[in-house]
């Protein structure tokens, strides 16, 4: 039984080995130990979605996972996903369509939208709403966010066809 644990996992492709207090959740570890403050802390009980990160390619709530549970896993945050260029088009669309105001929800909104676009490239407006339903935005009223995701999906679609 431990209150601290030695763990090793990758964050945005970089392997790290640390001793971590078991009670620390993943989002606090990312922000406070690694300085990756793009992942935000909102409600700390899974309601707001601001802490969304990817573990082994799947989106999860960073506040509902102990950092030590990431041992051996592949963690990706908004810093990694934006620096790789993976969501550059989506970020552009958010910018162009005013899909953010204060920006607090935006990193998680981008990761959640990207998750939908990878899984369901033909998502309808209703399916976009449904997939983003766990991410709160208190500024935009959501319409512009849905617009941005929808237009990015449309722009990606012919490119995907021509490549395949």
């Amino acid at each position: 039984m431990d209150t601290e644990l030695d763990v090793s996992f990758t964050v945005n492709g970089e392997t790290l080995t640390r001793r971590i207090a078991v009670r620390q959740n993943l989002v606090d570890f990312l922000r406070e130990e690694l300085g990756l403050t793009g992942t935000h802390v909102g409600c700390e009980h899974g309601a707001c979605g601001a802490c969304t990160v990817r573990i082994d390619g799947e989106i999860v709530r960073g506040c509902l996972l102990l950092a030590v549970q990431a041992d051996g896993r592949r963690v990706e945050t908004i810093e990694g996903v934006s620096q790789s260029g993976e969501i550059a088009d989506l970020q552009d669309a958010f910018h162009k369509r005013n899909a953010l105001q204060c920006g607090f929800c935006t990193p998680a909104m981008l990761l959640t939208a990207q998750d939908l676009m990878q899984k369901n490239p033909n998502a309808s407006r209703e399916e976009i709403r449904e997939h983003l339903s766990g991410n709160y935005c208190r500024c935009t009223g959501y319409q512009a966010i849905i617009d941005a995701v929808q237009s990015t999906l449309a722009a990606r679609s012919p490119r995907g066809v021509s490549q395949s």
Binding site: M1, D2, T3, L5, A21, V22, R23, Q24, N25, D28, E44, L66, V68, D71
Partner: peptide, 11 residues
């Protein structure tokens, strides 16, 4: 808030 201290075992 943050979780209180607790012991942890990965079974």
């Amino acid at each position: 808030m943050k979780a209180p201290p607790f012991a942890y075992v990965r079974a």
